[in-house]
């Protein structure tokens, strides 16, 4: 059974239909990606699953449990955590305080300390800088912190909103390595990206979102090789045209 099942999800903001009924599933242990242009509804999808925006119609089940009408805090407790777009670490809190906020809904001090050690093991840089204010970290370090903060809630599903946004290409490579490693540890990942190339390379399965509708779905590699996708999202259309000239 799928870990996350979204059925006919509809979301409207002030009269504008951001999502016009999308359905997709995320299998346990997979990396699933939603790709699409600006305004296609990718971020709205994640925000709706997190309970941050009201849902007009449709259903969301997580591990067999209905979570459509739950509050964000309950959804985080169920094991779904979002890494928001633009990292959004707490700039005036230290790295350690940021991590502790990630464990806000947990009440087991000893276990929380163990999770902090677990995060430090994966991101030694965060341990080195644990007393530094998060606002003074580099972009890549902030992204590591945002992922580490999400891990503090011991999630079963991490949803990442544009993790490569505004980062240097080398750092983007690091971030995707981190995503792969999280999957190897059994964490399921729902990834949304404008960097469709990197996302599809990493993903087991992908969905293409266009103005609030899912228009295509397939395995990551199949979508990578799909001519329409290449033309629309992988920026190779122009290249091909110049080649033929």
């Amino acid at each position: 059974m799928s870990l996350l099942t979204v059925t006919d999800l509809q979301v409207s903001y002030g009269g504008i239909e951001a999502l016009k009924g999308i359905s997709f599933t995320v299998e346990k242990g997979h990396i699933v990606t939603l790709i699409g242009a600006n305004g296609a509804g990718k971020s709205t999808t994640l925000r709706a699953i997190s309970g941050l925006v009201p849902i007009k119609a449709g259903g969301i089940t997580f591990d067999g449990r209905e979570i459509t009408s739950l509050m964000t805090s309950s959804i985080v407790k169920e094991g779904i955590v979002m890494v928001p777009e633009g990292r959004r670490v707490f700039p005036n809190l230290t790295v350690l305080e940021n991590l502790r906020i990630g464990a806000y809904l947990r009440h087991d001090p000893a276990e929380i300390n163990a999770t902090i050690e677990y995060v430090y093991e994966r991101f030694p840089r965060l341990k080195e800088r644990h007393w530094q204010l998060a606002g003074t970290l580099s972009g890549g370090e902030q992204q590591m912190l945002a992922v580490g903060r999400a891990l503090m809630a011991r999630p079963r599903l991490i949803m990442m909103d544009e993790p490569s946004l505004g980062l240097a290409p080398l750092v983007v490579k690091d971030i995707f390595q981190i995503i792969q490693r999280l999957r190897e540890e059994g964490i399921t990942i729902l990834l949304i990206e404008q960097n469709a190339n990197a996302a599809l390379h990493a993903a087991d399965y992908g969905y293409v979102l266009e103005t609030g509708r899912i228009t295509m779905e397939d395995t990551g590699s199949a979508l990578l090789n799909n001519q329409k996708i290449r033309d629309a999202y992988l920026g190779q259309a122009r290249k091909r045209r110049t080649e033929t000239v």
Binding site: V81, F90, I101, A153
Partner: peptide
């Protein structure tokens, strides 16, 4: 927004 996403009411 980030605080809310972490489950803080």
């Amino acid at each position: 927004i980030a605080a809310e996403a972490m489950g803080i009411n």
